[in-house]
Design a protein around this nucleic acid. Structure first.
Length: 873
DNA sequence: TGCGTGCATGGAAGA
DNA sequence: CTTCCATGCACGCAT
């Protein structure tokens, strides 16, 4: 509890509150973003003491409830909020209490209140306040909104009459530093209606630079409103009521405005860069809030960077936003944050920070599954909002518009196909097209839902992805679709847990995503009438289209025994399957009437060309192929890391190679699925063959990394080996050998030269080791067939051939380092040798060393092989 | 060998 | 000049 507490203004109440939890201008702040409007204890209408949501900072975080003293996790906080809601519902409203006994800042608040009250309909407020009872929480919410009007108006008014608010803002700013909880949020419900306010208040949008151009026309429309009315229009009102009333302006126009909503709070207002101001239309807000009593408060948004959208799973948060809208954290470990996504799925991200240049860098960790589920990429925008009074954090998104992605109206695709990498599909605009294929997809997928069907219906209304979550104890709301039926509830929290599991995405979810994505790809076709031009970017050939891809109809390709290729498509009208030439690209909606390739008159009356049995077989084959394709794709992605990088570009499109559906599609995997053209990782920058492109003395990043990894691998294997041997030796009759013949794993072990290690003569283990080492032997720069060689050969000759084949620098290294005797030494020894730990650890200074080590390992394997072969026991 | 984690670095943008 | 933050990178663990 703060020592500097404030007292409820009602003298009969005098409830004490920590000053750090008080926003003197706006009333009692709630972490959930609501506004304190009446005392929880005495019912004074001016302030609201909501005990269980007034958390304040302490050394271990912000989790201590200022009133009930609960310290804890988000779960507890959630409970607190629930209890708060109950309390609120039971609260009574009374008239404004005696306000005489308040501190100076409180008095400032009163002045503010008074000023603000002048700006709106006081009678409304007072009548509400003097009501003996307001039973429903909803009613009370209206009250709350009125009470916050002044607060809300302040930032806007500051444009018009800055002096009227400046004092309060200043007074408040110091409080911000005391408590992060209050920084934001009070703008809250008010911001919801900012569009209205702006529209009606600011005829000249230049007063508020963040107001985007879309509202110009509207601004003109309302600019003639008298000043007096402007204030009134600044009043926050429940969005629904605004919409219902129609108000002064065209609702649809208003709701479509994408307005950058500046933070109201002084501190945030000054510090939050406009690029983080949430741009959200009222329509979107309306959709979010739905019919619930909840108010959605846009907090901030961020355009995803490559890092954010990458697989690291860390979303860098703007510092100001993090400190303003997320709970204060004092430890780098941070705390888990529950955030609900657009589908209503609740995620838990770790909100934390890193010390950085005497500052902090805030990140949300574990966002990958969420971002994947929303199919977000770099350039898309993630919007953070909060739903009051629950205080639930919401995470929405906006896909980057197609016009941004497809600059110059060009469309790049992988060679000959459309890449499975972002295809820049303006997905929301095409959702109907997608859905139009859902039926077919379902049939092809055995009736499984097409994932995109699960998207909220308002997806189709714009580029904004919001889903109205189930709120208030699961109370269903009208309008929005329920959570994705593809994600059973039991799966939703799978990624919640230990740190290491945070990034886990349910495999089934991933599969769903993959399938849907690929199926979506399948429906993408180059515009039929457009001839691509070929461009080469970094040795990758791309077909460049002047027009974006179109949705094509899903079809099934077959090859007759005669080798003839054909395509089967289902009529959208009669659902009969028709045979078509393989090279035909169908529109998303296609009927028999459009079957110009039909031998007979194109009509739905023509009997199905496939018997039920044939159709069943066809669909079955298609399904199986689909599975194979996914499986092979995944396998290929995992296994063929060192395959030809020319295959990096995915190729997945229907119609590209209709002749071999399987063959063509199986080849759609990349050697590394997450890599993109231009990726500079070790896999992507290595030469195609992995051999011969780097000289032994090469110190490039690839070589150095390979060496480093190789050394690490070898040391670990040795460690495991020695441990295993120790275990076996202990179990059997130990055969002690001097340390010099044992292997050494670390400097410490080297230092303990007097110790002994033991080794096993177990040939079986040696064989296992050989295989294991053989695997480990494979490296990026080794012969691609090395694994096969290793697997297929246990003979010394084969190993030597491998050595010669893959490790040519061995001889050079051994000669250069006077280690030619090592070969025989190793062969003669029991197979272990002492590595040079320092060099091994820091071996970047000697490129050849790694080759040497590699050679040594090979020799070791050779000797071990011999040993295994020669020692049948 | 991949991946997670923590930290460092440097460019960009704001003060 | 300072701060932010996007990204790189090293290290260690898991597979």
């Amino acid at each position: 509890m703060d020592s500097d507490s404030k007292i409820c203004m009602n003298e009969q109440c005098r409830m004490s509150l920590p000053s750090s939890s008080i926003d003197f201008k706006k009333g009692w702040p709630l972490r959930s973003g609501g506004f304190a409007t009446l005392c929880h204890h005495c019912g004074t209408a001016y302030e609201k003491l909501v005990f269980c949501d007034m958390f304040h900072s302490n050394d271990s975080g912000w989790r201590e409830c200022a009133s009930c003293g609960k310290t804890s996790t988000g779960e507890n906080n959630k409970d607190c909020r629930i209890s708060e809601a109950k309390d609120i519902g039971e609260q009574q409203l009374t008239s404004v209490g005696n306000q005489s006994n308040v501190g100076i800042i409180d008095r400032m608040k009163l002045v503010q209140f008074s000023d603000d009250a002048d700006n709106f309909d006081q009678s409304q407020l007072l009548s509400s306040q003097t009501d003996d009872k307001i039973e429903s929480f909803g009613q009370r919410k209206v009250e709350e909104n009125f009470l916050t009007t002044g607060e809300y108006a302040s930032p806007l008014l500051s444009f018009l009459n800055p002096s009227s608010i400046e004092a309060t803002q200043n007074a408040k700013s110091s409080e911000y530093k005391e408590n992060m909880l209050i920084k934001d949020v009070h703008s809250s419900s008010v911001e919801t209606n900012l569009t209205i306010s702006l529209s009606s208040t600011l005829g000249n949008t230049s007063l508020l630079p963040a107001v985007v151009a879309e509202e110009r026309s509207l601004g003109k429309k309302i600019s003639s409103l008298p000043q007096g009315s402007r204030s009134r229009h600044l009043l926050p009102r429940p969005l629904k009521s605004i919409m219902a009333a129609g108000l002064e302006t065209n609702v649809s126009t208003i709701s479509q405005l994408r307005v950058a909503r500046p933070p109201v709070e002084g501190r945030i207002k000054n510090q939050l860069l406009p690029r983080y101001w949430p741009r959200i239309t009222d329509q979107e807000l309306l959709q979010i809030s739905g019919d619930s009593n909840s108010t959605v408060i846009p907090l901030f948004e961020k355009v995803l960077s490559a890092s954010d959208a990458g697989r690291i799973g860390r979303l860098v948060l703007p510092k100001a936003c993090a400190e303003a809208y997320f709970p204060p954290i004092s430890q780098p470990e941070g705390l888990p944050l529950r955030i609900q996504d657009v589908k209503g799925k609740e995620w838990v991200f770790q909100f934390r920070f890193w010390p950085n240049n005497n500052s902090r860098m805030y990140v949300l960790e574990g966002v990958t599954p969420c971002i994947q589920s929303m199919q977000l990429q770099a350039g898309d925008t993630v919007t953070f909002s909060r739903m009051d009074p629950e205080g639930k954090l919401l995470m929405g998104f906006r896909k980057a518009s197609a016009t941004i992605h497809m600059q110059d109206n060009k469309h790049l695709s992988g060679k000959g196909t459309f890449s499975s990498e972002p295809f820049f599909l303006p997905i929301t605009d095409n959702l109907h097209s997608v859905n139009s294929n859902a039926g077919l997809l379902q049939s092809l997928k055995g009736g499984r839902d097409f994932p995109l069907n699960a998207l909220p219906k308002h997806f189709s209304t714009g580029d904004f992805g919001w889903h109205i979550p189930e709120m208030n104890g699961g109370k269903a709301m009208d309008g929005p679709l329920p959570s994705s039926p593809l994600v059973p509830e039991r799966k939703r929290n799978r990624n919640i847990g230990s740190k290491s599991k945070r990034l886990l995405i349910d495999s089934q979810d991933a599969l769903e995503l993959k399938l849907s994505w690929e199926e979506l790809q399948d429906m993408l076709c180059p515009p039929p009438s457009v001839k691509p031009s070929t461009v080469t970017i970094e040795d990758h050939e791309f077909e460049e289209y002047d027009q974006p891809p179109v949705f094509g109809k899903k079809s099934i390709f077959t090859v007759r025994l005669s080798g003839e290729q054909e395509q089967w498509a289902q009529c959208d009208s009669c659902l009969k399957w028709r045979r078509l030439p393989a090279n035909v690209l169908l529109p998303p909606q296609w009927t028999c009437q459009e079957n110009t390739w039909a031998l007979s008159r194109p009509s739905c009356c023509v009997p199905d060309e496939l018997s039920p049995q044939e159709l069943e077989n066809l669909l079955k084959m298609s399904m199986e192929f689909k599975k194979q394709r996914i499986a092979v794709g995944l396998k290929s992605a995992n296994v063929h890391e060192s395959s030809d990088p020319d295959a990096t570009e995915n190729s997945a499109a229907v119609g590209d190679d209709p002749s071999g559906v399987a063959a063509a599609s199986v080849a759609t995997t990349t050697k590394h699925p997450r890599h993109r053209p231009g990726c500079s990782c070790i896999v992507c920058i290595q030469p195609p063959s992995g051999k011969g492109k780097h000289k032994p003395t090469c110190t490039c990043n690839v070589c150095m990394t390979v060496k480093r990894r190789f050394k690490t691998l070898m040391m670990r294997k040795k460690k495991r080996q020695s441990e295993r041997e120790a275990e076996i030796a202990q179990r059997n009759k130990f055969v002690w050998v001097p340390k010099e013949e044992a292997e050494v794993e670390s400097c410490q072990q080297v230092a303990l030269g007097s110790e002994f290690e033991f080794r096993s003569k177990n040939s079986k283990q040696q064989s296992e080791k050989l295989e294991e080492m053989g695997k480990g032997q494979l490296d990026l720069n080794c012969h691609p067939d090395g694994e096969i060689l290793l697997r297929n050969s246990s003979s010394r000759v084969s190993m030597m051939s491998l050595v010669q084949e893959a490790s040519l620098p061995l001889e050079n290294y051994l000669k250069q380092n006077g280690l030619t005797s090592l070969v025989s030494d190793q062969q003669a020894s029991s197979g272990s040798h002492v590595l040079r730990p320092q060099a091994t650890r820091e071996g970047e200074d000697d490129q050849n060393l790694s080759h040497g080590i590699q050679q040594e390992e090979v020799k070791e394997e050779l000797s071990e092989t011999d040993e295994a072969g020669n020692d049948p026991s």
